[in-house]
Nucleic acid binder design. Structure first.
Lengths: 178, 178
DNA sequence: TGTTTTGTTTACAATAGCTAAACTGTAGGT
DNA sequence: ACCTACAGTTTAGCTATTGTAAACAAAACA
């Protein structure tokens, strides 16, 4: 796996020499040189030392790069099938190569989204209007207009609207799972 | 670094035996056993093989765990100082241990947010009302009500409202950087 | 109880991971 | 032009790590 360029860019961004980084990480500048040119590979422990010295983490380091399109208009939205009474629109299509996925979801009264199985990553969002019931495994959480929500998607989860009014939410998943 | 428990949980979640995972990753079940009990450490290439076999990625694997609080009401919001004419509210405080940060930002006409330096991670959001100008280094992107936006925060960036009407946006950062 | 399945253990070999030190290229000062 | 300092590169070498093979142990099943 090629990590050299990324490491070099991070080091330069912090205005460090190979020797300075090596000192911070308790390594040698020769090794840093080999790493940045992908002529060797560090152990996990060593990589962690280097990333700590660069004020970053494994998760951030391995997060995929973002795309070039910045603004996505309403025309870009892609509707996704879901349960009856639920209208799902991906606001930023092609999320496979992105860190997050943004979705606008409208739930008619007494409707619910498809159940999602546990997966890696987190989800969050905000209630634009109405009220929702966030189902996490066996746990139920209620959120009203203006409330935000956040959870790790390590249990089966879905969202219900048990009220008599339409609910609209903005739903974000990192990494994309929708 | 301890990755054994995480690997085991991922393997069990996919209902694989150590031998099945080993086969998928072109390794031996003995090695999987050692890994899951943190009695050895894989090389980066080998870890990548294993994570691919588990349908995940380095970024996801090393992403930090999420929190337990799920719903955040308006009372939880925390205002953040910014430039004149800009009102910033973190919707989910305590984002240090989360994958994403959610912020509601109101920009009065002819106002702008503080400039943020380049950092690791991505940011996205949606324009709730009004219009914004997304400044990415030297690039300018305009977004109107209903538009979503997404970018990698690898350049200095901030948001302006160059219109004569108030703008309200929902702004997400992964990992949190606000 | 016996068999199968799954996980653990360990000796071992190959090589990866990292160092130390010398070398190279560039920039700046005299 | 020469010298020095700085930053990066290169390479020989060594040790510990990485990963295997095969035997053993525990758990599950019939």
């Amino acid at each position: 796996m090629k990590i050299g360029e990324k490491l070099r860019n991070l080091r330069l961004a912090q205005e460090l020499t190979q020797e300075e980084l090596a000192n911070r990480a308790d390594l040698t500048k020769g090794f840093i040189s080999l790493l940045e040119r992908d002529l060797t590979s560090p152990s996990l422990d060593t990589l962690e030392l280097i990333l700590n010295a660069l004020d970053t983490s494994m998760g951030d380091f391995f997060a995929d790069k973002g795309p070039t399109t910045v603004v996505f208009t309403k025309e870009n939205r892609v509707a996704i099938d879901d349960e009856d009474g639920v209208e799902k629109e991906v606001l930023i299509p092609g999320a496979q190569d992105r860190e997050m996925d943004l979705m606008l979801v409208t739930l008619e009264p007494n409707s619910r989204t498809k159940k999602e199985d546990a997966h890696l990553g987190d989800e969050c969002g905000i209630v634009i209007s109405g009220r929702i019931w966030i189902m996490l495994g066996k746990d139920v959480h209620r959120a009203s207009k203006g409330d935000a929500f956040y959870y790790t998607a390590n249990r089966q989860h879905w969202i219900e609207n048990r009220s008599k009014r339409k609910a609209v939410i903005l739903w974000i998943s990192a990494p994309p799972s929708f």
